[in-house]
Every structure is written in C-alpha cells, then in structure tokens.
C-alpha cells in the first residue's frame, strides 16, 4: 500500500531542569517538610508518614504546610518556605 506522512499532533515532554543545588542532610537529622494538599484525609495520611519516617530516621524538625485549595498549585511563598526550612518534602493527597 502507498504511504503518506501525517503531522504529529502531540508535543514531547520537555526535559526537566536539572536541580540547581544539591541537598545535603545536616549532621544532626532530617528537617522534614510536608505539603498537605488540603483534601479531607491528607492530614491523616501525612501524619502516618511522618510517624513512619521518625521511626526509621533521626528527624530534627517537621514543618507542615497546607495548600489553601487542593486544585490550585502551592503558592510561591509556601514553596520558598519549604525550600528554606526542609531538607526533603513529602507531598501526598488523600480523599
């Protein structure tokens, strides 16, 4: 059968930017960040995760931030605060 060309209607995923800085854990323990998406049961799930992390690792501090609405991105302020106050961030949703 004869062949034809068609134009691709899709778009490739752009390559993610490389991390601009390396995260190194402080010698004491983890500064754990938690981003709650504000769904009804997200806080319960995240508290279970916090308890689990604490059992496995030394945790110096926990900072919890909550999005005002689950269906909107976290604000720059929330992300900046998490970047400043946490070594790693757990983000999860539950409903």
């Amino acid at each position: 059968m004869a062949k034809i060309f068609i134009v691709a209607p899709d778009a490739p995923m752009e390559e993610a930017e490389q991390l601009k800085s390396r995260r190194t854990l402080s010698s004491g323990g983890i500064r754990l960040g938690v981003l709650d998406n504000s769904k009804s049961n997200a806080d319960h799930l995240l508290n279970l995760i916090i308890d689990g992390v604490k059992k496995e690792f030394k945790v110096d501090s926990v900072v919890i931030k909550r999005k005002p609405a689950s269906s909107r991105p976290a604000t720059d302020q929330i992300l900046d605060e998490l970047a400043k106050e946490a070594d790693l961030v757990v983000s999860a949703m539950a409903d």
Binding site: M1, A2, K3, I4, F5, I6, V7, A8, P9, P12
Partner: peptide
C-alpha cells in the same frame, strides 16, 4: 525529529495509527 509519521495511505489505517 518526531514531526512526521509515515503511515499507510488509508483513512482507517491512519485512524488506527493515531
């Protein structure tokens, strides 16, 4: 790269491909 795809010149074949 990836802008074009070669398929059989048949509407059903194009639809199946897509």
């Amino acid at each position: 790269p990836g802008a074009l795809h070669e398929v059989d010149d048949d509407p059903e074949a194009v639809f199946e491909f897509l």
